[in-house]
Design a protein around this nucleic acid. Structure first.
Lengths: 243, 243
DNA sequence: AAGTGGTCTAGACCACTCT
DNA sequence: GAGTGGTCTAGACCACTTG
């Protein structure tokens, strides 16, 4: 670990250095996703640190939801579960009275010039290009939400190769599969607007609409998506756990 | 630690037993809140376990926000900070355009008979009495939110001794000081209602109102408060971090 | 200098899973 | 039985705070 001590600066604890090395290997998909990663004793041999130090490094990665330990079997790479995702907070009640996730349909995706406010939010330089995406969300075939999404062009350019109808119901799996960006956390602000007329949303002009602004972050806590959603309040349902 | 091993059942790891012992002392206010708790080596002597085991127990209590470690000084009991609390998510924009927390005024508090639905939410037996509390929240002197709050009578009976005007702007400090209940987590559901006429809220009858249902939990993760808030959407602002 | 928590080690034994 | 992670120990040295 001596070279990495030098390259990382002398202040970083050993277990943090080990953590970064493992995290880097995870990002490079060095290990088979269906097999356990090397055991703690193997890793302690590989990095020439004690097993306790490896355990502490892995402990951190488990906290960050990158790894899962299973006693007796090994330590595994966590598979993101988008269908039961923590990212899904709002639902609508359908005609049957069930709370369901609105179906998503992408209407437009294009490369656009930088927008100062958005570039600032996504912590990009003022001259970085963006991807702009329009998407609607439907309940029982009716558009309830209209979403405007901005992404870094550099990170997400491969999304432009997908034709609109090939986008599935969820976007985040595409971010993950195509662009290697796993959305791990987010900040949401809910406010209300009145007199807003949306391109896709068929709302009475005097109706109060919900506006949701989301900044979504990847595993490295870097903001990678900014989203503004305009939604009808009828049958809307938002649920969140606060800790 | 042998007696406690017997009383706790033989399955609980040592560090969990130590954690529970420390947690119990915290609940009984055994230690001065302005002084560090006994050092890790003192605790390892007291409980006859290794220092690593004490460290693991304390680690858990730090994660639960019960303790704070400061290197070189010691481990301290965490003081709840209600004014900058994690519990404050919604704000309103005042006439000056600033986002502020609405001022809270308690209008009514009384002991009431059990309500099956509420008793179920608070995980009480069907015959446990309740405390019912009505409260309004104001911005610039205008009532924007009307809150109905239900609490366990057994846990919160001492609140009945407080006269209405002595309740401060915040309720949770009273829960903590008078009833030893620290609110540590919560679940909130936001929906909308139309045609609801509130006793305190001076809203047009056709106005869409926000309805917030909150279940708030103490440090032991037990639900202790159920709250339904009806609010006007004008200038409303809700913000949450999702992890 | 003394005391605190922070890092790191080496090794023991236990509980669980697979074959 | 062999291999995995889970628990627990005993002791070393470092970094920070206070007197």
């Amino acid at each position: 670990m001596f070279e990495s001590m030098a390259s990382q600066g002398f202040k970083l604890p050993l277990y943090e250095q080990v953590r970064l090395q493992i995290q880097e290997k995870l990002a490079r998909h060095v290990w088979d996703i269906n097999q356990p990663i090397p055991s703690e004793s193997e890793l302690s041999d590989e990095y020439h640190v004690s097993i306790g130090t490896v355990r502490k490094a892995i402990e951190r990665l488990v906290e960050d939801n990158l790894l899962v330990k299973i006693q007796g079997k090994g330590t595994f790479i966590r598979q993101p579960n988008f269908s039961a995702s923590l990212m899904k907070f709002f639902r609508y009640r359908n005609v049957a009275g069930e709370l369901i996730e609105p179906v998503g349909v992408v209407k437009n995706i294009e490369k656009i010039a930088p927008v100062p406010a958005i570039n600032a939010i996504l912590k990009l330089t003022p001259k970085d290009s963006l991807i702009y995406l329009e998407r609607v969300r439907l309940i029982d075939g009716t558009i309830m939400l209209s979403e405007k999404i901005w992404l870094s062009y550099d990170l997400f350019s491969s999304l432009l190769d997908i034709s609109l109808q090939d986008f599935g119901n969820l976007l985040y799996p595409f971010y993950y599969d195509r662009c290697n960006q796993l959305i791990a956390s987010a900040n949401e602000k809910l406010t209300f607007v009145k007199g807003y007329k949306d391109k896709y949303l068929d709302n009475p002009v005097d109706e109060t609409l919900l506006k949701i602004c989301r900044i979504a972050n990847n595993l490295e806590h870097a903001p990678v998506e900014y989203r503004e959603s305009f939604g009808r309040t009828t049958n809307f349902h938002y649920e969140v756990n606060i800790v």
